[in-house]
């Protein structure tokens, strides 16, 4: 008896320390980011560090008034929104087709989808830039959104594929026998069931675009997104502004993920449907 309870409590100890470790892994850097963002320039450069923020909003106000900041933010939102729409409009039908139909080359197609992520973006950046200049979509929001869609599309295809596969075909068949066409069966039965998952995968695409910096930095000059804009300007900024800039980038992504966490779980099939 003693042995069992001992091994159970030691198992519990390992489990708890794992949880603490993982939380610390995520939270400690974020916490330092927060402290340094809310500290005066002197405190940022001082050592040892204080663990309590000073609530000095100097760095953040600086950014709010920084020229070009707002238009970069607007660009980021536009690019991410277009990416989100495109990757769902293109990705969801592909996911549906993969889950419901048998066609020649299906496995190859699934493999090819993953392959789009096999080539590092720096490798593709130069030819893409040349092609974009030739077609005249360089330095545009739409052009960049196309690249981001390419990055997000594999995820949205595979996520929607698993979403549709999780819905028994009998539900659709039942709808057909009850008077639905393929289209109405989709809109009346399948869509309501996958909508949470689709939302999650849309937000996922949004965040991918929001966080992407390399393509944004290479392909835009005037119409920079927030990441590219900050990357360009923070390089030469003092340390406290770098922290503040990092904070501005991280927070929206975190808020998005937090807001849709329920759907993200649904997307990976954790929540019960």
């Amino acid at each position: 008896m003693a042995d069992i309870s001992q091994s159970r409590s030691s198992g519990r100890f390992v489990y708890m320390s794992g949880v603490v470790l993982l939380c610390a892994w995520v939270l400690v850097p974020l916490y330092f980011l927060l402290i340094n963002t809310l500290s005066s320039p002197e405190a940022v450069n001082a050592f040892p560090k204080s663990f309590i923020p000073e609530f000095d909003l100097g760095s953040l106000t600086f950014f709010a008034n920084f020229a070009g900041m707002l238009s970069a933010l607007k660009n980021s939102i536009f690019v991410a929104a277009i990416t989100m729409i495109l990757s769902i409009v293109l990705g969801a039908p592909a996911g549906y087709a993969l889950s419901r139909f048998e066609f020649r080359g299906k496995e190859t197609f699934r493999f090819l989808i993953l392959l789009t992520r096999a080539f590092p973006l720096p490798l593709l950046a130069l030819p893409l830039a040349v092609m974009f200049i030739r077609t005249g979509i360089d330095d545009t929001i739409f052009g960049l959104a196309l690249i981001h869609t390419t990055l997000a599309l594999p995820f949205s295809v595979l996520i929607t594929f698993s979403l549709f596969s999780g819905i028994p075909i009998e539900l659709e068949e039942a709808a057909w026998t009850l008077g639905c066409t393929r289209l109405t069966a989709f809109t009346k039965v399948i869509l309501p069931l996958v909508l949470p998952g689709i939302t999650a995968s849309a937000i996922f695409a949004f965040v991918i675009s929001w966080n992407e910096v390399f393509a944004a930095a290479v392909l835009t000059i005037e119409n920079r997104t927030l990441t590219a804009f900050l990357l360009q300007n923070l390089d030469t900024s003092p340390l406290h502004l770098k922290f503040a800039g990092g904070f501005i980038l991280v927070v929206p992504a975190l808020v998005f993920i937090f807001a849709v966490r329920k759907y993200l779980f649904a997307m990976w099939g954790i929540a019960n449907r």
């Binding site: 028994p168 009998e170 068949e173 039942a174 709808a175 026998t177 009850l178 008077g179 066409t181």
Partner: peptide, 16 residues
């Protein structure tokens, strides 16, 4: 299926 005048009951119920 919708034009055949049939109704079907499935093994796994297929209740929406």
């Amino acid at each position: 299926p919708k034009d055949r005048g049939i109704a079907m009951v499935f093994q796994n119920y297929a209740v929406f």
